[in-house]
């Protein structure tokens, strides 16, 4: 079981190094997803299956998709077709797929060996986390909900498209107000 941790840690560090060194943002995002999956595997073998599931669902699922959407909104140009062609070439996805295959082999090994549950009965399941979260940390949950609402309203307000009816300085004035 320790080997699983070390392999996952190696995959996480390697893919994170690839994230910060890629030139193409989409390639970096692919490696980032691999890194998050490796970290989820580490959480699982560390005895935090609930957090591992949340890492996959929220981080690798929601936040990275948000990044992909933003990137696609930025790339609306003539080079979009060219990027699409590069995107489909094997050189861009061979690395992440290899790393994910390593993680998948680990996962298959764990499941075939333990039947999907953590050996030794160790770890903290969702039950303990839920009891502590909604008991002791209830104020934190309320604050988190307020933070998410503020983030939602703020993102909508900042990200909405300014009306294009005015002249160019209209937009630049709006840009200045954003900057402040």
């Amino acid at each position: 079981m320790n080997t699983v941790f070390y392999i996952s840690a190696a995959v996480a560090i390697l893919s994170t190094a690839m994230v910060i060194s890629r030139l193409n943002a989409i390639h970096a995002l692919l490696y980032m997803i691999v890194s998050l999956l490796a970290v989820a595997m580490i959480f699982f073998v560390m005895g935090a299956p609930f957090i591992a599931a949340l890492e996959v669902i929220v981080y690798a699922g929601a936040i990275m998709v948000l990044f992909v959407f933003a990137m696609m909104m930025l790339n609306l140009g003539q080079e979009a077709v060219e990027r699409e062609r590069n995107w489909l070439s094997p050189a861009s996805w061979a690395g992440p797929v290899t790393l994910v295959a390593v993680l998948f082999a680990e996962f298959i090994w764990i499941v075939s060996r333990t039947g999907g549950s953590l050996p030794g009965g160790g770890g903290l399941g969702p039950k303990q986390v839920g009891i502590a979260l909604l008991g002791q940390y209830l104020v934190g949950v309320e604050l988190a909900s307020m933070l998410l609402l503020a983030g939602l309203v703020g993102a909508y307000h900042i990200g909405r498209r300014m009306p294009r009816t005015g002249e160019e300085n209209e937009a630049s004035r709006a840009g200045i107000s954003i900057k402040q």
Binding site: L66, F67, A150, G154, A155
Partner: peptide, 10 residues
């Protein structure tokens, strides 16, 4: 999650 939403809008 909140930081990414606001950051991407910016």
């Amino acid at each position: 999650a909140a930081e990414v939403a606001v950051g991407l809008a910016i």
